[in-house]
């Protein structure tokens, strides 16, 4: 296993962990079925890209996008996080205020599809279907990105972001505020009857989750240096939901485990199978990626049927000094 491969794996793991922590906060803890989660990661990536890139007239003007501010790190990442949060405001305002929660899920799914279609077809806006390429890696003016130390550096910055995200979600989930979120998830009307404002709670968590998702997108685009509609199709959200369901809804450790088992694990297994020539040549081309979707579907169904609480269930809170 070479360094590049190890770094690659760690960075992807970090990004998936951050995304899963955010989705767990929204879905596992608060009960918002955010089927457009990947759009928030995407907007963070686009924002970080155009903030860090020069105007599109550079590089011979072969691609078209708005902005181009050549901002130094960490401004593009902060911008990506802010963009995720900002997007959550209008979306939450339309979707979370009035609709019933099952309709919310459908509305968010539709939004994900529409957003992808619009960005694909608006080719002057964010590169259209071809997307944006040559996104400068963070700190590339300080240290050569094609070196081993840079790989370590990127792993390091990603790890810092993972810790940051973990501290935020842990503090929220394990606080009295997190308890209010869980109560609302359990029974919204009763929560309102004891003074909780469901719309405000959901809006807040939608925005917090959007910020964290945006950050994950910024980290991802800084690493892969390209961004296009094909990497944020709505099924990507389903993979993250699978991770939360497998790991354990409402449990942050479960979300981390889920991130490692599902998105990271599946990518790795697929890659290994594809690398093995005798397996990769079985059946028609594209069979293994297709089977990956079948496997994810079966995984979700299997867990919902046999272990709906996931590998690590939501912890039962026991207070000191009680009886027994």
């Amino acid at each position: 296993m070479n360094t590049y491969y190890a770094a690659n794996l760690l960075i992807y793991a970090g990004i998936d962990i951050i995304a899963c922590l955010a989705l767990n906060l929204q879905f596992g803890v608060t009960g918002i079925v955010n089927f457009s989660f990947i759009v928030f990661q995407a907007v963070g990536a686009y924002a970080a890209a155009v903030l860090s890139m020069p105007p599109d007239t550079a590089n011979g003007g072969f691609q078209h996008y708005i902005g181009g501010y050549s901002l130094p790190f960490p401004a593009p990442w902060v911008g990506g996080a802010v963009a995720g949060g900002l997007l959550a405001i209008p979306v939450g305002f339309v979707v979370l205020r009035k609709l019933r929660s099952d309709y919310q899920a459908i509305a968010l799914l539709v939004l994900s599809v529409i957003a992808n279609t619009v960005i694909t077809n608006a080719d002057k806006f964010l590169g259209g279907a071809a997307g944006i390429s040559l996104v400068p890696p963070p700190l590339s003016d300080v240290i050569n990105p094609n070196t081993e130390p840079y790989e370590y550096l990127y792993v390091g910055i990603t790890a810092v972001c993972v810790v940051l995200a973990l501290v935020v979600v842990n503090r929220v989930v394990n606080s009295p505020y997190g308890r209010s979120l869980r109560a609302m998830r359990e029974r919204e009307l009763a929560a309102a009857a004891i003074g909780k404002n469901p719309v405000q709670l959901k809006m807040t968590i939608f925005i917090v989750g959007g910020v964290i998702a945006g950050l994950s997108g910024a980290i991802l685009v800084g690493f892969i240096q390209v961004w296009a509609p094909s990497v944020w199709l709505y099924p990507e959200t389903i993979i993250l939901f699978a991770a939360i369901i497998v790991g354990g809804r409402g449990n942050n450790v479960g979300a981390i485990l889920g991130a490692l088992l599902v998105p990271v694990g599946f990518e790795e297994v697929t890659r290994l199978l594809n690398n093995n020539a005798s397996i990769a040549n079985l059946g028609p081309p594209g069979l293994i990626p297709a089977l990956q979707w079948v496997a994810i579907g079966l995984l979700i169904l299997g867990f919902l049927w046999f272990r709906p609480q996931g590998v690590r269930p939501e912890p039962r809170r026991i207070f000191e000094g009680g009886p027994e």
Partner: peptide, 8 residues
């Protein structure tokens, strides 16, 4: 009944 079932 309107308890929060998954809370203690």
């Amino acid at each position: 009944p309107s308890e929060f079932a998954q809370l203690t």
